[in-house]
C-alpha cells in the first residue's frame, strides 16, 4: 500500500490551502472559498479544520486536539491519531505545551499566546445562513456590509423574548467590518476572541470555506449598544474536582443525580495542582 505524503494531502492541495489562509488573514472575518478535499473522516466531522492543520503543521510542532473541550472525546481522539500518523508531530494534552490546537466547539480555558495557533472546526461558516439561504445573495450582503436582516432578527428576539436566540454561533463583528460566525463555541468563549494574541483559523470542509482572525484583532459580539451581552453562567455551581466556579462547566448525570465538572480537563488538572500546593 502507498505511504502518504507528509500531512496526507499532496503539495498542490497544501499550497492552495495556504494561499487561502493568507488571504483570509489579510481580510479578517471574510470567507475565502477553497477546493476542499475529501478526507478519511466524514464531512461534518472536522475535514476543514483537518485540512488547515495538515497544511500548516511541521514535524517540530506539538499538537493538541480537543472536542467539546476535552482531548478524550471521540472526534478528538481520531483526529489526533491521524494527524500524528502522517506528520510524526508531537502531541500533548496540555494547552501551554501545544503550538497548534485544533478544536471543535470550545476555546481552551487557559489563555494562549502569540506563538500558538488555534484551528477551529466549523459546520456552517456563514452567519447569514439563518436569514438568507441563498449563497449568492449572502455574498452580496457581506460585500456591502448589509447585515440588516440579522438586526431584524436581533430586535425581534430582544423585543419578544428579552434575549437573542443565538446560544452558540453568536455573530461577531471582526475588525469593525465583517460579521462572522465564530463556530459553535458557547457565548462564554466569545469575549476570548477579542484582541486574542494567537492566530485564529477557521475551516469549514463541507462548505469549502476558510476564514481567519489575525492576532490582536478587535472582535465584538453583535448586540444593541444598550443591551449587555450575557454569557452562560452556572449560578451557585462549582467543579466538584477542583472547585472552580468561573469556568464553563459540564453537566453530567450519574445515577440520576446532577454533577458539575470543569469542561476543560487541562485547566481542571492545573487548578487541582495549584490548590494542592
Amino acid at each position: 500500500m502507498k505511504t502518504f505524503n507528509f500531512g496526507f494531502l499532496d503539495e498542490d492541495a497544501k499550497k492552495e490551502i495556504r494561499r487561502s489562509i493568507l488571504k483570509a488573514i489579510a481580510i479578517p472575518g471574510y470567507l475565502v472559498a477553497f477546493a476542499s478535499r475529501e478526507m478519511p473522516v466524514s464531512r461534518g466531522w472536522g475535514t476543514g479544520g483537518l485540512q488547515i492543520t495538515l497544511s500548516i503543521i511541521l514535524e517540530k510542532d506539538t499538537l493538541k486536539v480537543i472536542d467539546q473541550g476535552t482531548d478524550h472525546s471521540v472526534n478528538a481522539v481520531i483526529l489526533r491519531k491521524f494527524i500524528q500518523s502522517c506528520t510524526n508531530c508531537k502531541t500533548t494534552l496540555h494547552t501551554d505545551e501545544a503550538t497548534i490546537i485544533q478544536t471543535r466547539h470550545r476555546i481552551p480555558e487557559i489563555p494562549t499566546n502569540s506563538d500558538q495557533i488555534l484551528v477551529f472546526q466549523v459546520p456552517i461558516p456563514d452567519v447569514l445562513t439563518i436569514v438568507e439561504p441563498s449563497p449568492s445573495q449572502r455574498r452580496i450582503l457581506h460585500a456591502y456590509n448589509d447585515y440588516s436582516k440579522l438586526w431584524v432578527l436581533l430586535y425581534e428576539d430582544v423585543a419578544t423574548t428579552g434575549e437573542s436566540r443565538f446560544s452558540h454561533r453568536y455573530p461577531v463583528v471582526v475588525n469593525n467590518r465583517y460579521v462572522m460566525d465564530p463556530s459553535p463555541i458557547p457565548r462564554y468563549d466569545i469575549p476570548k476572541l477579542n484582541l486574542n494574541p494567537s492566530l485564529l483559523l477557521f475551516g469549514a470542509g463541507r462548505e469549502k470555506m476558510i476564514y481567519a482572525i489575525p492576532p490582536y484583532t478587535p472582535v465584538k459580539p453583535l448586540t444593541f449598544e444598550d443591551i449587555p451581552f450575557k454569557v452562560e453562567n452556572f449560578p451557585g455551581q462549582r467543579c466538584e474536582k477542583c472547585g472552580a466556579s468561573n469556568v464553563f462547566l459540564d453537566l453530567v448525570y450519574i445515577n440520576g443525580e446532577k454533577h458539575y465538572f470543569c469542561n476543560d480537563p487541562d485547566f481542571c488538572q492545573r487548578n487541582q495542582q495549584c490548590s494542592l500546593k
Binding site: 500500500m1 478519511p40 473522516v41 467539546q68 459540564d250 453530567v252 448525570y253 450519574i254 445515577n255
Partner: peptide
Amino acid sequence: FKDIPYGQILGPTNDYILKILNGTW
C-alpha cells in the same frame, strides 16, 4: 449530553473508523 444514565454505548459503528484504503491503518 456528555454522559447520561446508562452511558454512551458506542457499540458497533464505523463512525470512528478513518476512511483510508491503506490496509495497515
